[in-house]
Simulated scan of single mutants.
Amino acid sequence: MSQHRPTGPNGRSGGVPALPDLPEATVARLPEYLRALHHIAETGNDTISSEGLAAAAGVNSAKLRKDLSHLGSYGTRGVGYDVALLIDQIEFTLGLTQRRAVALVGVGNLGHALAGYAGFASRGFRIAALFDADQARVGEPINGLDVRHISELATVAAAESIAIGVIATPAAAAQDVADALVAAGVTSILNFAPCVLSVPEGVDVRKVDLAIELQILSFHEHRKSALTSLPGGLAEEAVGT
C-alpha cells in the first residue's frame, strides 16, 4: 500500500499522508531496518540492496521486501533501495518526524540509567520530565532535569505535551503509575516493571522484562546442554533426523 496525501474537495492534496495498515510483526521490524539504514548512511552508501539491508537488520530478504512493500517502497532492480528516501519513509511511518516528549517515572537504578541514555535523542525522543514518589529524590538533577514528585505528573504532562510514559518503578507501584499516566492523557506506555498492567481501551502498552528475556535464554542454554550430553551429542542427533 503506497502512502498518499488525501485530497480535499478542491482536488488538492493536504493534511498529513495516510498511514498504511501494517501487520504488528512488520511494525516491530521497522525500527531494526531504520537502525541498519542509519548505519549504512553513516558509511557513505546512498543505496543498498534488499539482501544487504536484510543482512544488516538480521532478517531474510524476502521478509524485508514484503515489509517494505507495505510502505510503497519496492526499490529499483539492479540498484536497490535509496537509503535516504527509505529512512524518510520509515521515520514517517513510525511517527518520528517530530521529537516525542517522554515522561520517565521511577528514578531508581534502572530509571537513572534510562534517564541518562543518550540514544533516545538520536532516535526521535526527548526525555521531558522525571518523576518519583520518594521525596528524598525530588529535586535530584539527572542529565539536565530535576526529578519531580509524582503528584505533579498531570500538570507537567500537559505543559510538556507528554506523548509516552515510561514506568521504571517496582511492580507494586506500577499500576498506580499507569493509572496516573492515563488520567494525565498519556496513551502510550513502556513498562519495565515486572507485572501486567490493566489499561483502558485505546492505551498501548509495551512491556520490557529483562528477567523474562534471561529466562528464555536460559531455556536455550538448557536445551543445548541437554543435546550435547546425549551419546554422540548434536552430531549423532543430526544423523538420526
Rank of each mutant, 00 (worst) to 15 (best):
V166W: 06
T169F: 15
I164E: 10
I167N: 14
I189Y: 03
R148P: 00
H149M: 00
A159D: 11
A172M: 11
A159W: 00
S161T: 09
T155E: 09
D179F: 07
T187I: 09
A180V: 06
T155A: 06
V186R: 03
L153Y: 01
A174G: 08
A171G: 12
T169K: 08
V182I: 08
I150K: 01
A159Q: 06
A157N: 04
L153W: 05
A184I: 08
G185L: 07
V147D: 03
A174H: 14
A173P: 05
L153A: 03
I150E: 01
I150S: 01
L153E: 04
A157K: 01
V156Y: 01
A163E: 10
P170M: 13
A174F: 15
A163R: 09
S161R: 10
A172N: 08
S188P: 00
A159S: 14
I167T: 08
I167G: 11
I164N: 07
S161H: 09
R148S: 00
S188I: 04
A183Q: 13
L190T: 04
T169P: 11
V186G: 10
V147C: 00
V156Q: 01
A184L: 10
T187H: 10
A172H: 13
R148I: 00
L153T: 02
I162A: 07
D146I: 00
A158K: 11
A180F: 12
V186E: 03
V182M: 08
A172Y: 07
I167A: 13
A158L: 06
S188Y: 09
A172E: 08
T155M: 03
A157T: 10
A171N: 14
A171E: 12
V147A: 02
A154N: 07
D176C: 11
D146A: 00
T155V: 06
D176F: 14
V166A: 12
D179K: 14
D146W: 00
A154G: 05
G165Q: 11
P170Y: 15
G185F: 06
L153K: 04
T187G: 08
G165C: 12
S188Q: 09
A168N: 12
G185P: 09
V186A: 12
T155Y: 01
S151N: 02
Q175T: 13
A178F: 13
A174Q: 13
D176H: 15
A174W: 15
I167Q: 09
S151A: 06
A154T: 09
V177H: 05
A158N: 10
A184H: 05
I150R: 05
A178C: 14
A178L: 14
A159C: 01
V177G: 03
I164T: 14
T169G: 15
Q175G: 12
L153M: 12
D146K: 02
T169S: 08
L153C: 03
H149S: 03
A154E: 07
V147P: 01
T169C: 12
V177A: 11
I167Y: 13
